[in-house]
Design a protein around this nucleic acid. Structure first.
Lengths: 230, 230
DNA sequence: GAATTGAATTCTGAATTCATAATTCCTGTC
DNA sequence: GACAGGAATTATGAATTCAGAATTCAATTC
């Protein structure tokens, strides 16, 4: 008999995740995909009908997303999809850059050879996407590379933290209507990143990833300034 | 008429936070204060009676804390207070160190003179606490200094991210049964931190805070290794 | 015709109820 | 006496219900 009652073995063999967690995942997807836009009000009734669940798990899911910063809860008035100001974006990127920096340093130490090869392959595909002028494909591969580096860092806490911060500025990253010159610079940065990883040079990789992210911020803010607000 | 239904002005003048959020705050406090220990099972019934609320807001609160990583939800078996392994601690500290590093860099730029003076004052109090051999006081002031630097960085996203990561390893930080020599080294580090802030030397402050945090990790892991596990 | 007040409707907040899964304890058997 | 099986109890998951706040719309007055 333990004095502290404990769960012996989470196992999770056939344990289905709670409905609220599933709903949160779907809702998060809707927000990240842009189907629910920033500033938009969230109607409980509408979503319960859409998902076919009652209000209880939906409201629990909304609490989860609010704690992630994806939506804002306003007492007695429901929830709205969070809208990030330029100032908040500018604040978030140094945080993301620092997180990617550590990810790079740890990935250089911990990545398997297979992971390094995969990232090299993705970088090649990125070059092809730039050559073909395919922006959606570029964004997709770009995201895969960053996710692969995060995974290769073998740091669960880092990955979770990164995902939370990145989620809050996710949509902004696709607003960067990048110019050809910025696009090619970004590709060059990615190729140096792949090289540093292949050489397992953690310090260089960390710095490259950090600077890459900060350059992205500059590009996004410029794009926001030139293109009129949405 | 907006196509996107929007909340005109959150205002929040007399808007009380939702009961679930209040419950989450209290529960978080219980976990951080150590009243609910790692691995301990959370009984809904017990807590609803203690807080005088129904299960609904309590369950919403538990979803919030789970998304913060403070508790683990096990489907159909309730929740347990998360227990962090040494490996997870070792993963968390580089993340925290990086976050404090940016905090330092931004605080050097953005802190008001009053904030700098306050941190200098707290550092003096820290020296007194070391002189008096008062460890609880030392921990308290130490935490206030780090919080003050975070606040001075004027970066809400950074503060929130830091709080989330720090919360998950909070209790471990007080396990560091620090030796006299480590204690005095930490104090010296704090005095250099205060100096760098006074000089508004962001690069130095960032590095000092980063290294300070990593040194703390080393001390904690050593303390855990020598002292038997709890 | 515009503005303000008040009633009706709609939505959110929280408690309660119902269903289902897990744990515990007892009984019977080997 | 120990182990296996099963019933009873207890806890969790989710839907429903009830209460209260906010929004909307209409009516009245200036």
């Amino acid at each position: 008999m333990t004095a502290n009652p404990q769960i012996p073995d989470p196992a999770g063999l056939l344990a289905r995740p709670a409905l609220a967690v599933q709903v949160a995942d779907v809702l998060r997807g809707l927000i990240l995909e842009g189907e629910l836009k920033g500033g938009e009000k969230i109607r409980e009734r509408e979503l319960t009908e859409r998902f076919g669940v009652s209000r209880t798990p939906l409201r629990e899911a909304m609490k989860i997303l609010a704690s992630e910063g994806l939506i804002d809860l306003i007492p007695n008035r429901g929830a709205v999809v969070a809208r990030r100001s330029d100032a908040e974006l500018a604040d978030a990127f140094p945080v993301l850059a620092a997180l990617e920096g550590i990810a790079g340093r740890q990935a250089a130490e911990r990545a398997s050879d297979a992971e390094i090869a995969e990232i090299a392959r993705l970088t090649g595909a990125l070059r092809d996407a730039v050559g073909a002028g395919d922006r959606p494909l570029y964004f997709e591969i770009n995201q895969k590379i960053h996710a692969a580096i995060l995974a290769a860092s073998r740091n669960e806490m880092l990955a979770r933290t990164h995902a939370t911060v990145a989620g809050q500025i996710h949509r902004a990253r696709y607003q960067a209507n990048l110019t050809r010159s910025r696009w090619e610079k970004a590709l060059a940065e990615h190729e140096r990143i792949a090289e540093a990883l292949a050489a397992r040079d953690g310090a260089a990789l960390g710095t490259l990833l950090h600077d890459h992210m900060m350059a992205k911020l500059t590009a996004i803010l410029e794009a926001r300034r030139s293109g009129a607000a949405g």
